[in-house]
Each structure stands twice: as structure tokens, then as C-alpha cells.
């Protein structure tokens, strides 16, 4: 199997298969889930049985059904945050590299300041002020991670701007639109795609952490992080309830990481060279 003109490695194939399965499970949740998302169907923290393959949660809802429905919330929040991060980061990063001079240095300085503090801490401060809601969560994560994307996009664009084919275009008198869309962007795609996967993982783990801290997705909705938060007390009773959503988080990040590793190894090869 090939992607971007390069053969997929076995780990990357495993990653893609896992990711397809997870997304599929989320999409098909209403049809494949044995119970409704909010139905109280059994005892609190019932052990796994034929009726409840993964047991029940802290309110007696079916764990498996909850897990399947939460896939949707989780992925929606994370993907939207990643898209916000990318739209902002790439646009401002390219612009900054292209304009250069004082504006570039001012934006870079601001980004450095934001990056001087861990994302989790800044996110906590913003949530303290604005309160917790899904749109606030998406925008906060998106804007904070945009700083990381900005750095990469700017570095990639700066690396390409000094390439001689870009200089030739500038010397021809081409406007910035041509230079960005036709000369820089096509060559930046592999690096940006790998970065997208990497950012996805980071945002995924951060949203999970925030939800785990009780500051992410709020009831009655739940993402996997919030499900861990709700079920922590089961641990001391020897129950495994919080493990299922936590494992789902780990499997998703591992899947994306496997694909990213492959993308990065492909990207390390010079562009345009065919095997």
C-alpha cells in the first residue's frame, strides 16, 4: 500500500487500521452500542458479564456503550482544536516568514512568551476565567497549540524561502499568492502533515488531562477523560472501570504516533525522489 508515493511500513499500517476502527466505532455508535448513552441499566460498577462486556460505570450505565458514544465527543473536540491550531499556526507562521522584519520578530516574541509557560497551566488559567464549556475548550487548546504550529510553519517557510527556486520566482516578479500557494505550500505539506498528527496527539492528551481534572467536557456529555474522572473511585475497590477509557486514549495516541513516525521518516527523504 502506498501513501504520498511511499510504501507504508507495517507499524504505520497497524496505526491506520486502529485509527479506522476507532473512527468507525464512533460513527456507528448508535447502531452498534448495546444500550443508550445515558440509560441506567445495571448496578454501580458491575463487573464485566455477557450483558455488559465491560461492566457498568459509576451510575450503572453500560461501559461499552458509553465508551462508543464518547468516541464522538472526544474526536470532535480534538479534531476541531487541531484544525483551529493549524489554521491559525500555518497562516500566521507563513505570513510572519514572508513579511519578515519587525512584524515577524514581534509575532515570534509573543509566541515565545506564550510558549514560556506549559500549555496545561495557561489552559487552566483561561478556564478559570471563562468557565468550562466545549467551545471555550476547543478555542483555548487550538490557540495555545497554534503557537507550536506557528514555530514549525515559520521555520519550514523560512527554509523554503531561501531555496533558489523560490528566489527565482521572486526575481520573476511573482506576487506573494503564487509564492505561497505554488512554491512554498506544496513543499511544506509533508512536514505539516506529520506535525498535524503530532499536534493531534498532544491536544488529545491535554484535553484528556483537562477532562480528567474535571475541567474539560462537562456532564451530561462525556469524553474519555471525563469518564476516567467519573470512575476514579472504582480503583480502590479493585474495579477496572476507569481503565477502559484510559486505554482507549492510549490506543488512539499510539495509533497516531505510529503513523507520524512513518510520515517523519518519509519526510526525511528529499522531495521528488522516487524509489
Amino acid at each position: 500500500m502506498k501513501l504520498f508515493g511511499s510504501r507504508l511500513s507495517t507499524p504505520a499500517l497497524i496505526g491506520i487500521a486502529l485509527l479506522v476502527a476507532i473512527v468507525g466505532a464512533g460513527l456507528l455508535a448508535p447502531w452498534i452500542a448495546p444500550y443508550g448513552e445515558t440509560d441506567l441499566v445495571g448496578d454501580v460498577w458491575a463487573p464485566p458479564s455477557l450483558a455488559f462486556p465491560l461492566g457498568t460505570d459509576n451510575l450503572g450505565r453500560d461501559m461499552l456503550s458509553r465508551l462508543l458514544f464518547a468516541t464522538r465527543t472526544t474526536l470532535t473536540v480534538v479534531i476541531l482544536s487541531t484544525i483551529v491550531a493549524f489554521a491559525l499556526g500555518v497562516a500566521i507562521g507563513f505570513l510572519s516568514a514572508l513579511i519578515g522584519g519587525l512584524i515577524d520578530q514581534l509575532i515570534s516574541a509573543l509566541v515565545n512568551v506564550i510558549m514560556a509557560v506549559p500549555v496545561l497551566i495557561v489552559a487552566l488559567m483561561v478556564l478559570a476565567v471563562l468557565g468550562t464549556s466545549v467551545p471555550v475548550l476547543i478555542l483555548t487548546m487550538g490557540i495555545l497549540e497554534a503557537t507550536r504550529v506557528y514555530r514549525l510553519a515559520r521555520a519550514v517557510a523560512n527554509g523554503l524561502i531561501v531555496q533558489e527556486f523560490v528566489r527565482i520566482a521572486a526575481l520573476r516578479g511573482e506576487g506573494w499568492r503564487w509564492i505561497v500557494w505554488r512554491e512554498i505550500l506544496p513543499n511544506a505539506v509533508p512536514a505539516l502533515v506529520a506535525e498535524f498528527g503530532l499536534r493531534f496527539c498532544f491536544i488529545f492528551l491535554f484535553v484528556a488531562s483537562l477532562s480528567f481534572l474535571g475541567l474539560g467536557v462537562q456532564p451530561p456529555f462525556a469524553d474519555w477523560g471525563a469518564m476516567v474522572h467519573d470512575n476514579t473511585a472504582a480503583i480502590n475497590l479493585g474495579g477496572l472501570a476507569p481503565f477502559y477509557p484510559a486505554a482507549a486514549i492510549a490506543v488512539t495516541t499510539i495509533a497516531v504516533n505510529l503513523i507520524v513516525d512513518w510520515l517523519l521518516s518519509v519526510h526525511a527523504r528529499p522531495a521528488g525522489i522516487k524509489e
Binding site: E164, F165, I168, R182, P186, N187, A271
Partner: peptide
């Protein structure tokens, strides 16, 4: 090598 855009 570097004077031609590898994607065009």
C-alpha cells in the same frame, strides 16, 4: 537540484 521546485 535546488533551483527547480521538486513538486512542479
Amino acid at each position: 537540484d535546488v533551483a527547480l521546485n521538486p513538486r512542479q
